[in-house]
Amino acid sequence: MNLLGNLFHKESHQHKQAYDFGEVLGQGGFGVVSQAHDKETDRDVAIKKVPKKSIKNRDAYRRLITFMRDNMDHPNTINLISFFSSSTSYYLVFELASGGDLIDRLNSAGGHLSEDEARQAVTAILKATSYLHARNVLHRDIKLDNYLYRSKDAPAGEVILIDFGQAVLLPSHDVKLLEPCGSPTYIAPEIYNFRGYSFPADMWAIGVITFNVLSGRSLYTSANPQIIENETKQFTDVKFNDLFWHDVSGDAKDFIQRLLKPNPNERMTVDEALQHGWIRHEGVSQIAPKKASLALDAHVPIARAEKVETLRLNEGQKPNELLELDGSSSGDATPRHPQSGSATPVPQDAKAVRERDKGDKIMLPGNLYRKLSRVVGEEVES
């Protein structure tokens, strides 16, 4: 090992020695998060260890991390204190948020939030997203379990956005991305349809979250990624079952509908969403309580749903690869690979994922499963 290598490893070793590492808080495809104690400041922190081999474009990743450390300061985003690296890993030092995530909050609230609490949480989510989008940062993995609370008794509106492992710093709002990524339940139609995507994809995910926190239900009838993909591709409009939506205001439903538009050009931007009547709490329609319908709701309960690991649909493709549109920038343009100019194929490993998950079933009581299967058109084995 040369002199520079010795100095590099000595420096990273010294950084790690500054912390007492404790329990593992979480683990996923992009790293391990551990609680640690900063000996110098005498405070607890969370340290995410990210293997360098999992990062395809390391220069872009380092630029994003540096940008986060030096430029991001918002009450609704996680605070990146510092970072360092070794020969094999990046170490990101964050503030410690120990109040649980939004799924935990839903479970403790009985499955869903009150409309007022939901408005507070969604407003905080929008403010964090506005802060990012104004700085050309596209998060790409907005989901319930990527929002934490600093303490268990924190108000609903003090939620903070975490996990920037898939975030990208774009040169402008006109750029579209080609690489499909995200968590299946929150992936926008234009990503599944390989049309190219940008900031409206984050807004779709916020629409899904709003649906989740108000109803306690998933937007989809299954937790199977293949079924979710098919339903997203065929999505036309939001269905509100009275069983779970009878006491939710019309303005809240309108807010969701304006975000869950299949055409990304018709979706509200984050600034438009912040001005919506439901968020501003102006002229909110009053809903008279009525008896809920007993009709079967086919949507999966959020409280029972497992936290799904982020799905990278195309591991072989370079991350952050920009989409060059053939012709106009309309939603009908066909995405092309920048180098080849050929139409984008369906990733082979995506097919493998679909085949692997094809047989997955939701664990439900037998009679309810048979009813649910008829609703979604699946054949039930006797």
Rank of each mutant, 00 (worst) to 15 (best):
M1F: 14
L4M: 12
H9C: 11
H13Y: 09
K16I: 15
K16N: 14
D20T: 05
D20W: 00
F21Y: 13
V24T: 15
L25D: 01
G26E: 01
Q27P: 03
Q27S: 10
V32Q: 02
V33H: 04
H37Q: 05
E40K: 15
D42L: 08
D42I: 04
V50F: 10
N57Y: 02
A60S: 06
A60W: 00
Y61C: 13
Y61L: 07
R63I: 05
L64Q: 10
T66P: 04
D70Q: 14
M72K: 04
M72D: 13
P75W: 00
I78K: 00
F83R: 07
L102S: 14
L102C: 14
L102P: 09
L106P: 07
L106W: 07
N107I: 15
S108T: 14
G111W: 03
S114I: 01
D116P: 04
V122S: 08
I125G: 02
L126I: 10
K127L: 10
T129C: 10
Y131D: 10
R135I: 02
V137M: 06
L138A: 03
I142M: 09
D145K: 00
R150E: 02
R150H: 04
R150S: 05
K152H: 07
D153V: 07
P155V: 05
A156V: 02
L161F: 04
L161P: 07
A167C: 07
L170T: 01
H173R: 09
L177G: 03
L177V: 05
G182L: 03
S183N: 12
T185D: 06
Y197S: 03
P200R: 09
P200K: 08
A201R: 10
M203V: 10
V208A: 06
I209R: 08
T210H: 11
S215I: 13
R217H: 11
S218Y: 06
Y220C: 15
A223E: 11
N224I: 09
Q226I: 12
I227Q: 15
N230P: 06
D237T: 15
V238T: 15
W245C: 08
D251E: 14
D251P: 06
K253A: 12
D254K: 11
D254N: 11
F255C: 08
R258Y: 08
L259M: 11
A273Q: 02
Q275P: 03
H276C: 08
H276Q: 07
S285R: 12
I287W: 00
K290W: 00
K290V: 10
A292T: 06
S293C: 04
L294M: 03
L296H: 10
A298V: 07
H299Y: 12
V300C: 03
P301L: 00
P301Q: 00
A305W: 00
R312G: 01
N320K: 06
L322Y: 12
S329R: 10
G331D: 13
D332E: 14
T334R: 10
P335V: 02
R336E: 09
H337T: 01
P338S: 03
Q339K: 11
G341E: 03
G341H: 02
S342C: 04
P345C: 02
V346F: 11
A350S: 13
K351G: 13
R356H: 14
D360C: 06
M363G: 12
L364S: 06
P365F: 10
P365M: 06
N367L: 15
L368T: 15
R374V: 11
V375S: 04
V376T: 14
G377V: 02
G377W: 02
E378P: 08
S382K: 07
